[in-house]
Design a protein around this nucleic acid. Structure first.
Length: 526
RNA sequence: GCCCUCCUAGCUCAAUUGGCAGAGCAGCUGACUCUUAAUCAGCGGGUUGUAGGUUCAAGUCCUACGGGGGGCACCA
């Protein structure tokens, strides 16, 4: 048996990787450094291609061989990863890619130093190169860098994915995102958009006088939500710590301290299941506004999401090369999400919890006996549940799914029994000043008029804690310091929580949360 | 936690009823100065996720395990 019969050589290196290692050595033997060095004066592929000058190109084609001819074709210096490689003998073509697009490079034996022409011949798909030369248009009409210089910048030792289909294996796409990103341009587009969505969100809030803050992610009490936390440990203080499940209780302390408008965009960690809408670590936006309430939060949220949709619509137009003046998206401002066309331009729908319940179920949510009978009839949970929970079971299973997923909808005024930590209406203590926003069938986030009476908050906390089981009590305890902060006096306030990952899913038309998180949690492969 | 489903060459995918594991791309050798999923001629490349089992014979059927995807349940 020869070595060639083995997939791997004695050193355990795959034959395809070995060929690439051999090519890397050949590059070094040409006197070129396979891993490149600092390179000033580079421009993006899109910017370079945009500088193509048809007149100069035509002039050069006509009179390029005349004595004393002055070449006025713009010369560009670009870098990118090789995605296609066509060796035509004494003329090598390659297409390189950066985050702005692809560009064709031609390396001719006649016009390039010998070592650099030989580099072109042994360049592998996946390598990163720097090319320099005038912009020309080929006979088939493609803008091309006609290189007078080609340099190596980095070697790709791993065989790349299939050149046309790209990297299809979902598992590999998540585990080896660095390949997915360059092999599938769509992936890079989504994550660039995500970044723009987040920075526009910051700008939107900054412009309105909100201050971005960072509160603890390691907490000795994990409060602000009812999820299971991750537990960790600090050696120096021999202290058990929780990863935060929400920043809420710290942000409210800041209202007490005298910051009237604060927000935080950061990670939360919840030790629960994972599915297409849940990753154990996810990014949320929380906003608090002193002297606001859940209505001011509603206006803020609607404007923010409309502005983000507008941003994405403009990006789409730019990407598809459409004339921005066409205005089609601006008039309607709809964005695709799967089979839906979600309308962000029209005023969002508003419906009260009670109204939606009555409309769909046919009776008032205050009719507990009827609700219980209805739940039983439909085979929903009801035994041993409080009235409000039976009503909510009907609401979530029957009423909520009737919302039009193509119309962003605020469901307002939840039963107070379901929202013990929210201020109730002055004229109806059974209703909480809370709304939830639904878009595309997903819950995007809630907002509240915050409770700021320390005695009521204290009582509600204790009621909640009284109802929990043994297991929960290990991570749910009363935050005495938070109650002390409320006793110092927190102004009346509106509070908002939005799931950033889900907003990005909606706006970039990605059906699973893993496609908007760069490195979603995966089980270790081995 | 339960149910369904997928895992075949570096990548993308085939393989009929259980009957010799294949193709394209990528790779290697050669030709080619306007190609563009370059083309042309030739050549290599496999422990079919892992471990067992049934069978004359297993990619295919059975069991367990690992990983992925989907659904259900759980989860203010």
């Amino acid at each position: 048996m020869t070595d060639e019969a083995h997939q791997e050589s004695d050193s355990g290196i795959h034959r395809l990787e070995q060929h690439r290692r051999d090519n890397r050595r050949a590059v070094a033997e040409l006197g070129l450094s396979p891993y490149g060095s600092r390179t000033p004066g580079l421009e993006t592929l899109a910017a370079a291609a945009a500088r193509y000058d048809p007149a100069a190109d035509a002039e050069h084609k006509e009179r390029g061989k005349e004595d004393g001819f002055e070449d006025r074709r713009p010369a560009v210096k670009v870098a990118g990863r090789v995605v296609l490689h066509r060796d035509n003998g004494s003329l090598v073509w390659m297409n390189i890619r950066d985050d702005t697009g692809d560009l064709q490079i031609a390396i001719s034996k006649r016009d390039c130093p010998d070592a650099e022409f030989r580099l072109a011949k042994i360049t592998d798909v996946g390598d990163v190169v720097v090319a320099e030369g005038p912009l020309v248009r080929t006979r088939t009409g493609e803008v091309t860098v006609w290189a007078f210089s080609l340099r190596p910048a980095s070697k790709c030792l791993i065989p790349p994915p299939e050149k046309h289909a790209g990297l299809q294996d979902v598992e590999l796409r998540y585990r080896q995102r660095y390949i997915d990103m360059w092999a599938n341009p769509r992936t890079l587009r989504v994550f660039k958009l995500r970044s723009k969505i987040v920075s526009r969100t910051r700008r939107f809030l900054d412009e309105r006088g909100f201050l971005e803050v960072e509160t603890p992610m390691l907490q000795s009490l994990a409060g602000g939500a009812a999820a299971r936390p991750f537990i960790t440990h600090m050696n120096a203080l021999d202290l058990p710590l929780f990863m935060r499940i929400a920043p809420e209780l710290y942000l409210k302390r800041l209202l007490v301290g005298g910051l009237p408008r604060v927000y935080e965009i950061n990670r939360n960690f919840r030790n629960e299941g994972l599915d297409k809408h849940h990753n154990p670590e996810f990014t949320s936006l929380e906003v608090y506004e002193a002297f606001g309430d859940y209505s001011t939060m509603m206006e803020l949220t609607e404007s923010l999401i409309r502005e983000l949709a507008q941003l994405v619509a403009v990006e789409f137009e730019n990407a598809s090369g459409r004339d921005a003046d066409e205005g089609e998206l601006h008039v309607g401002l709809t964005l695709p999400f799967g089979d839906l066309a979600i309308d962000y331009g029209s005023p969002f729908e508003r419906v009260t919890y009670a109204e939606l319940f009555r409309r769909v179920l046919g009776f008032a949510m205050t009719d507990a006996r009827r609700a219980r009978a209805e739940a039983k009839k439909r085979g929903l949970k009801h035994d041993g549940l409080a009235d409000a929970l039976v009503v909510n079971e009907l609401f979530e299973r029957i009423a909520e799914p009737t919302l039009d997923p193509a119309r962003p909808t605020f469901v307002t005024d939840y039963p107070a029994a379901l929202s013990p930590l929210t201020r109730t209406h002055a004229d109806d203590p059974e209703l909480a000043q809370r709304w939830d926003l639904f878009i595309g069938g997903m819950e995007i986030g809630p907002a509240y008029t915050e409770l700021n009476d320390p005695d009521i908050q204290d009582a509600r906390f204790r009621e909640q804690l009284a109802g929990i089981g043994e297991a929960e009590s290990t991570f749910r305890t009363l935050d005495e310091d938070f109650l002390r902060a409320l006793k110092v006096g927190m102004p009346p306030a509106g509070g908002l929580g939005l799931g950033i990952d889900r907003i990005v899913m909606l706006l970039t038309n990605q059906r699973t949360i893993r496609d908007v998180i760069l490195f979603p949690l995966m089980r270790p492969a081995d």
